[in-house]
Every structure is written in C-alpha cells, then in structure tokens.
Design a protein around this nucleic acid. Structure first.
Length: 278
DNA sequence: GAACAGGCAACTC
DNA sequence: GAGTTGCCTGTT
C-alpha cells in the first residue's frame, strides 16, 4: 500500500483488500458511523477521523495520529488478498471469502475490545453502539472534529473508579457489573494485556475467560479483535447455523489453519449479507 | 403483556 | 456435560 501524507490527510493507494463498509459494518467495531455522504467517522485512541473512499484510494483525515497509527489500525502490512486466496479450502468457503473480500481486522485497543464485547452479549448492534456511545460521552475525553463533538473510549483506570450506579446512565443493564470488574482487573494488573498479547490464542482465551461475564464467544472476540490473533474463531448463533449447515458436528476451525478468524469473518458476512438474498 | 435478543453464570441432575 | 433459568434493557 502506498501511503502519502498530504494536505493534513493521509492518502492510501489501496493495493489490497479494503472495503470501508465491510470493515466498519462487519461487527468487529462499534465506533464508526456512516455520514450522509457515505464517509465514515470514528474515534481511535484519542483521534477522531473521517475515512473517504474513492477510486481505489482511501483518504483519512484525522485530528491526530501519524501514518504509523493508521497503517497499524487498518493492519495495512497484512496481505488479506493473499490470505483469502489460501482460505478457499472448499467451494462454500470460496463463496464466503469472495463475498467478504475487502474485510480487514482492525487493530483495536485490547481494553476497548474487551469492554465492547462484554457489552455485546445478548444485544444487537444498534443497542451495543448506543451503550458504547453513552459510555464514551459520559466518561471519555471530548474531541472536537469538523465542528462536531466526539469522545474517546474511556480508559480502564477511569471505569475502575465507578460504581454500578455511576454506570447506570449508559444503560448496560446487568453487564455494568462485568464492565467494572474487568476494568478493575485491568488496572490491578491481574488482567495484563501485554502478557495476553504474548500468549497464543488458546491460552489468552482461557485466561480472559476468568473474568465474570466473559464466556467463550466474548473471549474469542476479544482475542481476535483486541489481540489481533487471527486464528481465534468466535461462534455465535449465525456461525452455529452456518457450521451446522455446511460442516456438521465434526467441524473444527483448524481446517482453516492460522487464519481461521478471517474465515470466520467471511462466513459471518456471507451468512448475514448474502445468503438470505439467494 | 409476553417473548425474545449476536451471552454468561450458577445451578441442577 | 447437557439442560434450565435469571439477568437489564429495548424491541416486536
């Protein structure tokens, strides 16, 4: 990918898979929203940004963050087209990966991913987004961008000091208790994201599942999206259906190898966006 | 009003 | 280990 910094914006000549709609709407993140003109606006760390996509070029205009932040966040060093080609172990996966071409796994902050996916349980995307937005608006740092207000995702340190009552404004329900416990665990060092990062996906999953409110699915989402371990394979009801239909009981994510997590994204995308249209 | 939702924990057998 | 139930909130 060619990244050129010009006129206070980054211009990325896309030479690999990169589809903003799929990237932002595939369920991996909750803080990017489409504007009327189709651009996406979101917050990463302490920077707000607008992503515009046109003629094979992505334009990123942000309040901050250098080239490194954005190339890291969008995982631009990884060859998704190449990985995708290698995933086509059967005809079904070929269809899935074709339909999902353009998805990239963002390198999100571990704490943000953990917290967001704790909130995601038994919830739909609009509501998850609402809760996360209220969390940020109430406890994050204010960022002004293009005449509008945005908020950073609050640090674990900040959430650790809150009571469940303090959190009631975000209307997370019974998940509030889990969020606070996770924040305190992160602050105390009992949950150590740097340490988890060094582990393999299976060990990291096992470790993060020690937290209350973190079961198998949330743990896999954390490992895949928060730790960027691309072999983690979250299984929700959509995936369960797809697996039952196409692979049966003996299924193991292992058949997709080191990039099973990407295969999961393609299957998920296909199940949600393509298959019902057939 | 009741059932349900992209899930988890605690409990039962 | 498989099955059941409550959980907080919002939607159908």
């Amino acid at each position: 990918m060619d990244i050129i910094a010009e006129d206070k914006q980054l211009k990325i000549k896309i030479t690999d898979d990169f589809d903003p709609v799929k990237i932002f709407e595939c369920g991996q993140c909750f803080r990017w929203n489409a504007l009327e003109d189709g651009d996406y606006v979101g917050v990463v760390r302490s920077a707000a940004a607008r992503v515009h996509f046109e003629n094979g070029t992505a334009y990123i205009k942000a309040t901050g963050g250098d080239v490194l932040l954005w190339s890291d966040y969008f995982d631009l060093e990884t060859d998704y087209a190449g990985i995708r080609a290698g995933l086509c172990v059967d005809d079904y996966m070929r269809r899935c990966s074709q339909s999902g071409a353009g998805i990239r796994i963002l390198r999100q902050e571990p704490w943000e991913a953990l917290c967001s996916f704790i909130i995601s349980q038994c919830n739909n995307i609009p509501r998850i987004k609402g809760i996360v937005e209220r969390l940020c608006a109430n406890f994050g740092e204010r960022i002004e961008f293009e005449g509008r207000e945005y908020y950073s995702f609050p640090e674990a340190e900040k959430i650790a000091l809150l009571s469940e009552k303090d959190l009631s404004v975000i209307r997370a329900g019974y998940r509030a208790e889990y969020i606070i416990a996770a924040a305190r665990s992160a602050v105390s060092g009992e949950t150590d994201f740097e340490l988890l990062d060094k582990m393999d996906a299976v060990s990291a999953k096992k470790e993060i599942m020690k937290l209350r409110g973190v079961g198998s699915k949330v743990a896999d989402c954390f490992v895949l999206f928060g730790l960027h371990k691309l072999n983690a394979f979250p299984i929700d009801v959509w995936m369960k259906r797809a697996i039952a239909e196409h692979y049966g009981k003996s299924f193991s994510p292992g058949i997709f190898g080191d990039y099973a997590g990407l295969a999961q994204q393609y299957m998920f995308h296909y199940a949600r966006n393509v298959r019902q249209e057939e």
